[in-house]
Design a protein around this nucleic acid. Structure first.
Lengths: 302, 302
DNA sequence: GCGGCACATGAAATCGATTTCCAAAATACT
DNA sequence: AGTATTTTGGAAATCGATTTCATGTGCCGC
């Protein structure tokens, strides 16, 4: 060890990786790093990975299937041992006659799910989230509830909508198709949605935004148009990003357990890599309604 | 190539890296991924790296010097070819009698600088930012301007403060020490700062927050206390994160060219790695004052 | 027709840690 | 004491692409 110190020897991890056939890297594939809801997930993935001796390679796919596919190839080239992906596409060709597990490398679907069975998934119950948010509004007396959804191609958005409709249905409230605006989870789509929705003759008394960013854009547009929140209109959303409590007014939102999702993803993936069988194939974590000031009873509601 | 297709051969990048002594990975060291101002930087680093054949390994240092040092060791172990760091600490022992460049691996200081010469740096002129923000407020007639700064140990904060004081000085305005609150760039510190500052007998008419997150916390606290922005008090800050335009009111802020910073960092680092000499040792990029609705002239100001 | 040169081909060495292998030494057991 | 088992030590093979080296082939010019 004295000599090691003297000549400043450090082991070459690449050589070790080559011999062992393991890179001790995991890739995290994200359509967009900029969405603040992803930061706590990445942060906790990083923390757990670090703890278990792995490094995290971050890949911004810009939601481009081509890029996704090229990143996935990093498993074959041995640059990474496994993948956490926040996309609903799994860029592998799966044939139905063999078990899925044999056809793919270690992979975990985070928060945003693909529709393939046999893939490990960690996330929330988006149907329940849609239902809970809607029930909160219904309890406050709202019946004209608009939605600003995510892209209709995205499962999480479809499921939240499903929960929304189920809750309306159970309450015996009919849904007006004109109160739906399809956005893309961005703040801009929140703005656009509000502009469209508030032109209606029969305006909504509440808007259910499918993401906190959307809600922030929506609230901005509402303020511009001179509406008061929550006096004139209530806003509820999903995600529970840190900044949601600093909105004006602080945002009522169904929070996802982001840190927990990250932890579970990393744990599951590394278990898979190391040949341990993860406890669950599908790991649904609890969400939580954070009731803040952006929702209120409709005027005259007892 | 037909055989390659048939047996599904993919080259093992690890083997290539071992032989070539290059991993084609670069590390990005960040004290906290969660700060939204860092996302566009990371995103563009990733994009440029991708374009030039490199992958980005993300490391959340949690501002812990110990972790930083261990991550830096990844250069020695050949896991990464170079480092972009957002910290003001450079975890290398530098002796003064040899050129710095010979003692460190390829490294680029992003946005947050260390005080060591000879390190490549990409960022903004924080003194000028402090000055510009202050002059904007002065032009609106404000003279009782409070600051909610970053940690006093952080260079960017010190420099913004320096610019602030210089601008006040040039305008012949004396600075009241009680109007300074030392925060830590977090939203919480914005809240705390406002609570403290608004207890003063002689309250400020404007607050200069040293980050957008800080401003969002500060505006939240001000609203809670019943102040109107910008009627009762003006708020200005620094960063120019995407969400700043959706604040209530939209935030006047001195925007950093975040995407550009990321691009330049990646370009400079990869040039260093590949033996090309980067154009500049210190690369200062232009900032821009975004005048929005959170600042207004003091009442009765012409 | 033959030396000289560029180019192509294939075998062998290389990167550096891990793993395997074999022989030698140390310990255990009857 | 003698065999069986474990431990130890060091040499050699291994991972797979890159690089080097040594041939062999083809083409040019004199």
């Amino acid at each position: 060890m004295k000599v090691v110190e003297e000549i400043g020897y450090t082991p070459n991890r690449l050589a070790a990786s080559l011999r062992q056939g393991r890179s001790y890297n995991i890739a995290v594939l994200l359509p967009d790093i900029s969405n603040p809801y992803i930061s706590p997930i990445v942060r906790s993935v990083e923390r757990v990975a670090q703890l278990r001796g792995y490094s995290v390679i971050l890949k911004d796919t810009q939601d481009d299937p081509e890029l996704e596919r090229s990143f996935t190839a990093m498993v074959n080239t041995r640059q990474v041992d496994g993948i956490i992906t926040n996309s609903q596409r799994i860029p592998f060709d799966i044939s139905a006659d063999r078990p899925v597990a044999d056809q793919i490398p270690p992979i975990v679907n985070a928060s945003e799910f693909c529709d393939l069975d046999g893939i490990h998934k960690v996330g929330v119950d988006n149907v329940a989230i849609g239902r809970d948010a809607t029930e909160h509004l219904l309890q406050l007396g709202h019946t004209r509830i608009a939605t600003i959804t995510g892209p209709s191609s995205i499962l999480s958005s479809k499921q939240r909508e499903q929960g929304f409709l189920a809750a309306l249905n159970e309450a015996g409230v009919a849904f007006d198709e004109r109160l739906k605006f399809e956005g893309d989870y961005s703040s801009e789509s929140g703005c656009d949605g509000v502009q469209k929705l508030m032109q209606l003759k029969n305006r909504p008394t509440a808007i259910f935004c499918f993401g906190d960013l959307v809600a922030m854009g929506a609230m901005h547009a509402l303020r511009e148009l001179g509406y008061r929140i929550p006096d004139d209109i209530s806003i509820i959303s999903v995600d529970g990003i840190a900044l949601s409590q600093y909105c004006a007014p602080p945002l009522t939102t169904v929070a996802q357990p982001l840190t927990l999702i990250g932890e579970q993803c990393a744990t599951t993936l590394i278990d898979l890599i190391e040949g341990r069988k993860p406890e669950k194939l599908i790991n649904i974590l609890p969400h939580q309604l954070l009731t803040r000031a952006s929702t209120a009873p409709i005027p005259g509601f007892t």
